[in-house]
Design a binder for these strands. Structure first.
Ligand SMILES: [Zn+2]
Ligand SMILES: [Zn+2]
Ligand SMILES: [Zn+2]
Ligand SMILES: [Zn+2]
Lengths: 167, 167
DNA sequence: ATCGGATTGTTATAATATAACATTCTTACG
DNA sequence: CGTAAGAATGTTATATTATAACAATCCGAT
């Protein structure tokens, strides 16, 4: 499945400047609500607020930037509040941590738990999540060959997105 | 080449407790010296010292642990000193940063510049560097398909090393 | 209504990393 | 040699990222 070529539905699409981003946000929030309802988890005001802020763009966001932006609307928010929200969102697969950036990005995948890979544009900062089956398999095979019991993978690819590459 | 099965020469070998680690250290230092000589770079006392400490084990080492250990022998060493040494060693491909651990590990590769992948044991902390051509190719292909101009890859696989897995 | 667990608030601090400028060391050259 | 320029290190301060510990509050179930 998902072998379609139509732009917008691609697995590894970058979004660039002008696109109907409201839809991206809407989709993410809808998914979060559904997923939390199904699991009996509480998508509280603060958690939803953090998720919205993360989805403000397709870039990875730093925890302390979230903190600043939250403090604009709510009254002074402290680090633990943000980190707890992030912890919750990550535990439920709604947000990923990008280790090589110390930053967080909304999960644009669909299935519940997945090992995501990321394409990270060094120019514009946009992050695109892939579910690269090919990479996943190559990784799994190499690990197996080394007698390694694979649990979790961090695959973060840095370079230039299509838009920035052709500039 | 390098299709041999003899332990110690494998591309993805974990080392475990008892092995002739002096040789690992010796090899690393010899390589560092040769490489620096070739490039006209200066492997100063501090840089060599940091490299030795990193090679004290096959685990990834935290910058502040290096700091502490340096401060035992030399008189109080400060963060910039360590980070500068690390910066130099990384610039010359003698040390890698493991982003998912905020830690540093000696490069056990042989060729000059390479995109390494790491197997990281969650139990014993040992890190094994791979030059997984298969992974590298899968990654390159996926990036190309997305129109992405790949510059650098972070591939860090967490799990259990052979020794810890069979325990 | 109220109890218990989950969530958030609050204060403090740990852990990781860099900026900026002073000092010392090395090397090349006169 | 002596010395000047650049490289490396020392030093002080601070930025950035993250967590510990305990108090207050919220919220749903009885
Ligand atoms: Zn969007
Ligand atoms: Zn870009
Ligand atoms: Zn060894
Ligand atoms: Zn192990």
């Amino acid at each position: 499945m998902a072998k379609s070529q139509d732009p917008g539905a691609g697995l590894t699409a970058f979004h660039g400047a002008r696109h109907a981003h409201t839809r991206c946000v809407g989709r993410a929030l809808t998914r979060a609500e559904a997923l939390c309802r199904r699991r009996g988890a509480r998508l509280t005001y603060m958690r939803r607020r953090v998720l919205e802020l993360i989805w403000d763009s397709h870039k990875a966001v730093k925890a302390y930037d979230l903190l600043d932006r939250l403090s604009e609307s709510e009254k002074s928010v402290r680090p633990p509040t943000v980190y707890r929200a992030l912890e919750f969102l990550m535990a439920h697969g709604l947000v990923h941590r990008v280790d090589s950036l110390n930053a967080f990005v909304g999960c644009s995948g669909s299935d519940e738990q997945h090992n995501a890979q990321f394409l990270i544009c060094q120019e514009c900062g946009e992050v695109s999540e892939m579910d690269g089956a090919a990479i996943g398999k190559a990784v799994a095979r190499q690990a197996a060959e080394a007698g390694f019991n694979l649990r979790r993978q961090t695959v973060e690819l840095h370079g230039e997105c299509p838009a920035c590459a052709t500039r």
